Computed example of a mutant assay.
Amino acid sequence: MNETSVMPPAMILCGGRGTRLRDVTELLPKPMVPIGEQPILWHIMHIYAAFGVRRFILCLGYKRECFIDYFMNFHAHRSDVTITLGSSANQVRFHDNIPEEGWEVTLADTGIDTKTGGRVAIAAKYLRPEEPEFFLTYGDGVADIDLAALLALHRREGKLLTVSAVHPEGRFGEIQISGDTVSNFEEKPVQAGGFINGGFMVMKREFVKRHLTGEDAFLEQRPMLEAAQEGNIAAYRHESFWQCMDTPREYALLNHLWETGRAPWTKFWKHA
């Protein structure tokens, strides 16, 4: 396989409890909370699919059965179906093709209370030998990000990790950037005036071996801080739309944008 000819797989962190969206996530894990008729996870996967990603590794934990049910019955929920009943001839025929034809989705059980770094380390066993790098993101944020440009910068800079730097509200981990290199990482400063890590990262497998072994750690704490201090994190500046779904207000905003046909994160989609 030529490294530049096939897009890396996308690993998506889906195991958290989503406590700040408690009214909704008591019934559903946050990545399964719907925007329109489909969960936000589906929207995130389509952001990647628009750039040719066809392989996904989902790091599951809280309410993992919701993801299993959704993907096991994915085609049935998107198509008219004819079912022939009977013990000897139980057959299912789908009448419609789906845009997601050919997607490969690995549902990886990474534990109920495992921290984000531990989830990546566990799910990394599903990376193939010919995959030296992979996309990595959270299961609760969307953006109109140019993933081809992100990957190109990652390969050009040669760092172990490339993060997408976005402008936030002031309650996330702030990153300091010098040129295209992250020089420091501070989790949740009191006031944020610059960039934060918006997810949509590219990680080399070497990062997992060097920073995510032997300890169940939050990716955003010791592992990223160590890599930043080593000069091993690059930053891709994304100045356009980015939005997480962390509160009821943000949940309502994303649904309003979708329902009114003004969802910026579909910018690169070939279909909506």
Rank of each mutant, 00 (worst) to 15 (best):
F185W: 15
R156D: 13
F185G: 00
L161K: 08
D146E: 04
F200M: 08
A148G: 14
A148R: 15
D216I: 04
A149G: 12
F218R: 06
L150I: 07
E206H: 01
E226Y: 01
K204V: 01
A227Q: 02
I145R: 07
E187L: 14
L212A: 06
A149L: 08
R210C: 00
G170N: 08
K209G: 07
V163H: 01
L151H: 07
E220G: 05
P168E: 13
E186I: 14
H211W: 09
S183P: 02
F207L: 06
M201Q: 15
F172D: 05
G214N: 08
G231K: 12
A192I: 15
D146L: 03
H154G: 05
Q176R: 13
N232C: 08
T162M: 11
Q191K: 13
M201R: 12
D146I: 02
G158L: 10
K159I: 00
Q221R: 13
E220V: 02
V202P: 10
F207R: 07
E230V: 01
S178Q: 09
R171Y: 06
P168I: 03
R171F: 11
I175W: 01
T162P: 13
T213K: 14
G214S: 11
Q229R: 15
L225Y: 00
T162L: 09
R171P: 00
E230H: 10
M224S: 11
D144R: 09
G199Y: 10
H154Q: 07
A228V: 03
S178I: 00
V163K: 03
I145T: 14
I145H: 06
F218G: 00
P223K: 10
R237D: 00
A148N: 15
L147H: 14
E174I: 03
A143Y: 06
R155C: 07
H238S: 11
L147P: 12
E186V: 15
A149T: 10
Y236Q: 05
E187V: 12
E186S: 11
E206K: 11
S164H: 00
H167N: 09
A148D: 04
T213A: 14
G173I: 09
V142A: 13
D180K: 10
V190E: 14
L212D: 04
N197D: 15
G214I: 11
E174K: 12
A165T: 03
G198T: 08
Q176P: 00
S240H: 15
S183A: 14
T181R: 05
G214Y: 09
H238Q: 06
I177R: 06
R156L: 08
E220T: 12
K188M: 09
F195L: 09
E239G: 06
I233Q: 04
A235F: 03
L212M: 05
E206I: 01
E215N: 13
R156C: 04
